[in-house]
Structure formats: C-alpha cells, structure tokens
C-alpha cells in the first residue's frame, strides 16, 4: 500500500502557519510541481505559435523590430548623444531591455491567478507554480531579446567586460521586486480591477522617472531628486551597466534596494499564500 498523507482543511489554517514555515511550504510546493510547471510552460509558450506558419521564429521578431527602430532613430540624428561612454542606441536599447525584464517579472506575477482562472476552480494545485511558469515563459523570450541585444553591441563595436557573467545575479532583485508587486496585484485584480489597473499604468509610467532612455546627468533638480529616491534607478541601471560597462550603478544604493526587494518579496509571498483562498472563492 502506498503511504497515505493526511490532509486537513480548516478555516484560517494557512494564517496560523508561522512566517518561516510558509516559505518552506511554498518552496516545497514549487519543487513538487516541477512537472506541472514544465507542462504548462510547454503548453503556453509553444502552443501560442502552433497556428502560425512562421512558428517559433516569431519570438525573434519583436526584439528585432525594437533594434531596427532604435537604429533608425539614431540615423535621423534625433537622439542627442549625451556622454554615456557608449553609442547612444546601445545605451537606450540595453536600458529598455532591462526595464522590459523588470516589467515582465511584474506582469508574470500579476497573471499568477488569472492565467489559471479556468483551472483554479476545478482542480486543487499549488498556485505558486503558476508564478514560476509565467516567469519561465517571460525569461525564455527575454533570453532571445538579450541575445540579439548583445549582437547589437558587437555591431556598435562595444566589447562587454567579462563581468557580464554576473548579470543573472545582478538582475535577480528585479525578479524579487517585480514578483512582490505582481503577486499582490494578481490578487487585487480579482476583487478590485480598478486598483490593479492603476498599479499597472503606474508601473508603465515608472520607466520615465528611471534613467533608462536618458542619462542621469539631467540639469533639473526635481528630476535628480526623483531619480535618486526611485529604487528602480539602482536596480535597472545596475543590470544595464553590468552589461555595457561591467560595473554596478552606485553599489551601496543597489545593495540596499536589492535587500529591500528580497524582504518585500518574502512578505508578499506570504501574503499571497495566506490570502489566495479568500480571493479564489470570489472568482466563481
């Protein structure tokens, strides 16, 4: 006879679980649902292209278009090359790519509950698996974007430093922060669409107060202050700089923000675990 696990369902059961235990349980759930994450990933990532003739080549199209447009803008002379040490299109392209990476993490987490809406009411499975499936999907397409961007570096004769190998580590806080915000909005979007819309729009606007399409040497004091207090500045710019300069953007600020992201993520993850069932029963 196979071993039989006793499962108990009680009100506020997850709430009574300690903080540390929640994280342990969630980590275990993720590990045990590897197969599910992989199957769902396969379904959504590849099946999306099953009805198209070009098929999987489509995922190269979007980043290619991005590059073409920045190169074109460069040719018009519209972009005033501030002194950023590298050709301006490279600076902007890598910067916006990093911003896209962050927004992708946010959007993936934001879809955690809604992506599985049809399933959630019918089968019981650890929903945190969906966070990782969505994130994996995002990373897969990001990798292709990144590859093409690095090719562009070569075209513009910028040699990345060997420190580029630290890129995954430097970019990790972007995941923590993006997922922290996204997990909360994924729940809010079920019970109050307005609030999650505001957050989503606000997140899009954040890009303009982060120095990704301009350099941080702006004259305005107000802009300087905003940039300084915007945590995204440190996280996004460090991920960009490690690729084009091989250095971090203001290391102290970066490490503080990175730590905060991790803490925020842990809190948000716990909140998700404790509250998701209260939200799910309102999805009917």
């Amino acid at each position: 006879m196979k071993p039989q696990q006793l499962t108990i369902y009680k009100p506020n059961q997850r709430h009574e679980l300690g903080f540390l235990k929640t994280w342990a349980v969630m980590a275990r759930n993720i590990l045990s649902s590897r197969e599910l994450i992989w199957q769902l990933f396969k379904r959504d990532f590849f099946a999306a292209y099953k009805k198209s003739f070009l098929g999987i080549t489509w995922i190269f199209m979007a980043p290619l278009m991005g590059i073409v447009s920045w190169v074109f803008l460069n040719m018009t002379g519209m972009l005033i090359p501030g002194d950023v040490g590298v050709p301006y299109p490279v600076y902007v392209l890598i910067g916006t790519t990093m911003w896209g990476l962050f927004m992708g993490f946010f959007n993936s987490a934001n879809k955690t509950l809604s992506a599985g809406q049809a399933l959630v009411m019918q089968v019981s499975y650890p929903h945190e698996a969906l966070l990782f499936k969505e994130t994996a999907e995002h990373l897969a397409s990001f990798l292709i974007t990144l590859l093409m961007s690095v090719l562009l570096l070569v075209v513009f004769k910028v040699t990345p430093s060997w420190k580029i190998i630290f890129f995954p580590l430097v970019a990790l806080p972007l995941f923590f922060l993006g997922a922290a915000i996204g997990l909360v909005t994924s729940m809010i979007s079920i019970v109050a669409v307005d609030i999650s819309r505001i957050i989503t729009v606000g997140m899009g606007l954040m890009m303009y107060i982060t120095p990704v399409i301009y350099s941080n040497s702006v004259d305005s004091h107000l802009v300087q202050a905003i940039i300084k207090w915007n945590p995204m500045t440190y996280l996004v710019c460090s991920a960009r700089n490690i690729i084009i300069y091989g250095s971090l953007y203001k290391p102290t600020g970066y490490f503080v923000c990175a730590m905060l992201s991790v803490i925020l993520f842990l809190i948000s993850w716990r909140l998700f675990y404790v509250s998701e069932d209260k939200i799910i029963e309102r999805m009917i």
Binding site: L6, I8, Y9, P11, V120, M121, S124, E281
Partner: peptide, 14 residues
C-alpha cells in the same frame, strides 16, 4: 478537493 477552505469546522482527507 481543497479548492477553498471551510469557514467553520474541519475536513480531514486521507
């Protein structure tokens, strides 16, 4: 099936 928890009482499933 554990899709959502009860508001009162207890369910045990082996």
């Amino acid at each position: 099936s554990g899709i959502f928890p009860p508001d009162k009482g207890e369910i045990a499933v082996r």
